[in-house]
Design a protein around this nucleic acid. Structure first.
Length: 270
DNA sequence: ACAGTAACCTGTTTGC
DNA sequence: TGCAAACAGGTTACTG
């Protein structure tokens, strides 16, 4: 569920609780999520200090002197800061135990990941070939325009590809295409530079706005304190199939693209 | 290199 | 009411 705004909301939420804190122990109750959880995580992190909490795309990076714990929340993951005595529930797979609290990973569908690297995390196989951060200056219309030449894939699948740009998932891709009036099925290679300008602006504004509101909570996304985000109230098309377009009142239509639902306005988006 | 599809899971909602 | 199918915020791996 978490897209970039939800992961960034999580990062900002957990950072003040764990940055500079010493790990007392690591408890893994599950052998594997998407991939096996590294054994000996307790040995690696016990008595180590968390020196920074970073994000790259939808990956969270908990740095320490000997290495980095890489966490991905997948579709249903969330991190919470709990009291040291809170009882772990059914889908609570990993605890990073500190003196005053526990950082607890919950992930019912187990599409998430917990990985360890003792090298530069950005050179890790899964991170090395990621596209630019959408909120950084390097993410421009010119970049998307050039990257999309001769690509026949639809624009929606194109911007959801993390090797093109990170952090744009189904909700925000759907919203950004509506805002920039681009039809989600249009071939990425057949979109003009001016239209990419509109799209890039929309992506940046929508992601920034969602972070400001603490992310989108549809069903079970929660912040580190268990509270929801408030961006769902600002969604204009996602989840609104058959309801009237907020611009022209024409009923919104849905289709499937790469196993994901896309909702769009047949009148406004071309 | 690119495009299309299946796969990994569980919980909740929808439809007969 | 019951049950099966469909659906859910992600991403890799495999095939052609």
């Amino acid at each position: 569920m978490p897209e970039l705004p939800e992961v960034e909301t999580t990062r900002r939420g957990i950072e003040p609780h764990i940055n500079g804190q010493t790990v007392l122990s690591v408890v893994a109750r599950t052998k594997k999520l998407r991939w096996p959880i590294p054994s000996q995580l307790n040995k690696k992190l016990c008595n180590q200090i968390i020196t920074s909490v970073n994000r790259r795309g939808k990956y969270l990076l908990l740095n320490s002197e000997p290495g980095t714990l890489i966490i991905h929340l997948g579709m249903s993951g969330s991190l919470r800061v709990t009291t040291p005595t809170a009882i772990a529930e059914k889908h609570d797979h990993v605890d990073i135990v500190f003196k005053k609290n526990i950082l607890r990973l919950r992930d019912p569908r187990r599409f998430g990941a917990v990985l360890w690297t003792s090298k530069d995390p950005l050179s890790h196989k899964l991170l090395a070939s990621l596209g630019p951060e959408p909120l950084e200056e390097e993410f421009t219309a010119q970049y998307l325009y050039q990257a999309s030449r001769n690509r026949r894939i639809s624009i929606k699948e194109f911007i959801m590809n993390s090797h093109i740009v990170v952090g744009v998932g189904n909700i925000y891709a759907t919203e950004a295409l509506f805002t920039s009036k681009i039809h989600p099925l249009r071939a990425a290679g057949k979109i003009s530079l001016p239209r990419y300008e509109l799209l890039v602006t929309a992506i940046k504004e929508i992601l920034a706005g969602a972070i400001q509101r603490g992310g989108t909570t549809l069903r079970d996304f929660t912040r580190e304190d268990g509270k929801p985000g408030y961006f769902q109230q600002a969604l204009q098309v996602y989840g609104r199939t058959k309801q009237p377009c907020v611009v022209c009142a024409h009923p919104l239509r849905s289709t499937k693209q790469g196993q994901r639902t896309t909702t769009y306005c047949t009148q406004c988006q071309r």
